[in-house]
Simulated scan of single mutants.
Amino acid sequence: MEHTNPAELAVVDLACGRDDRLLFSGLSFGLRPGQVLLLEGSNGSGKTTLLRTLCGFREADEGEIRWCGQLLEESSYYADMAYVGHAEGIKKELTVLENLRFALALSQPGHYGIDEALQKVQLAGYDDNPVHTLSAGQKRRLSLARLLITHNILWILDEPFTSLDRQGIDLIETLIDAHVKQGGMVILTSHHDLSLHHIGLQRIHLDSCL
């Protein structure tokens, strides 16, 4: 579906609760190509709940979310968005290569082919390895390769640095930086101090959104 308006995510007066407890309310923000939004807050402040709401996994209690000026269900949002959460979204019974081919069959091709993406995330040579034999860090790298081979303007990442060493953290920051410079958009949560030097970094602290 072609965009009728420039790519932009607009969140207006959003409120979400859990177990009869209000997590945040009156939350409004916008995100355009070339920008990164870092969600901060204490445990239980609603960071993962917000990401799941943005992904359409749950409904907000109040407010609305628009993509390219349209409500999500009326837009190309779900084709333009990719999510990587605590569960990496990969099938453990398949091999590395089979997982990436499966992801590519469901999406439009991205900037990288499978071989190049595996090189980028330092999984070259693991093509035929079943995912259940990979370490936690390698599974996280595979989920990132999935982002590289598919075309998604908006990346939504929940604690993407989990289970990664310093080299893996630097790799993700490099991939995020490249994605944004190519006109992409990123929303993420992290307890890690980011080393992103472009000017498009925004921060929202959910503890202040009550």
Rank of each mutant, 00 (worst) to 15 (best):
L134N: 01
G30M: 02
G56V: 11
G110D: 05
L22M: 13
L38V: 14
N99P: 12
Q70L: 08
S135T: 05
N99Y: 05
Y77A: 09
E64I: 02
G63M: 06
E59N: 09
E74R: 15
G41I: 04
A87L: 15
Q108S: 11
G125L: 07
K120N: 09
F29P: 04
N99D: 10
I65N: 06
Y77S: 04
L97E: 12
L123R: 12
N43C: 01
D127A: 13
P130K: 07
V36W: 05
S25H: 13
G41N: 02
H111A: 15
V121W: 03
K120Y: 11
H111D: 13
D127C: 08
L123C: 07
A82C: 13
R101E: 15
E116S: 13
G85M: 10
L97W: 11
L97D: 03
W67C: 03
F57N: 02
A117V: 14
I156S: 12
I114R: 04
L147C: 07
A82P: 05
G34R: 06
A117N: 09
E73V: 01
A105V: 00
K120F: 11
K120D: 04
G41E: 01
G26Y: 02
R140Q: 11
A103T: 03
F57P: 00
Q119I: 01
K92P: 05
Q108F: 03
G110L: 11
L148H: 15
G44L: 03
Q108V: 06
H86W: 11
D61A: 08
G85P: 08
M81H: 11
I65F: 13
L144S: 06
A105G: 13
D80C: 07
E64Y: 00
Y83R: 10
T150Y: 04
M81D: 08
A103Y: 05
L134K: 04
L100I: 00
P130N: 05
S76N: 15
L94A: 07
L106M: 10
A60F: 02
L148C: 14
A103G: 02
E88Q: 12
L72C: 14
S28G: 09
E62M: 07
D158Y: 10
V96W: 09
G89P: 08
G125K: 09
K120W: 14
D127K: 06
E73H: 12
L71P: 04
T133A: 08
E159L: 02
E116M: 11
S45I: 00
L157G: 09
Q138T: 06
L97N: 01
D127T: 06
L106P: 00
T133F: 10
S135L: 00
L23D: 11
E59G: 00
L38T: 07
V121E: 02
A117W: 05
A87H: 12
E93S: 15
A60N: 04
G113Y: 03
I114D: 03
L97A: 05
Q35D: 06
D115S: 13
Y77L: 09
G34H: 05
S25G: 13
L118G: 03
L154S: 08
Y112L: 14
N152A: 15
W155N: 01
E74D: 14
A145P: 05
G85L: 11
Y112G: 01
Q108Y: 03
T49E: 09
D128H: 14
H111W: 04
H151F: 07
D80M: 08
L71Q: 07
Q108W: 06
N43G: 00
I156H: 12
R32F: 02
F102A: 07
H151I: 00
L39W: 14
W67Q: 06
T49P: 07
A145E: 04
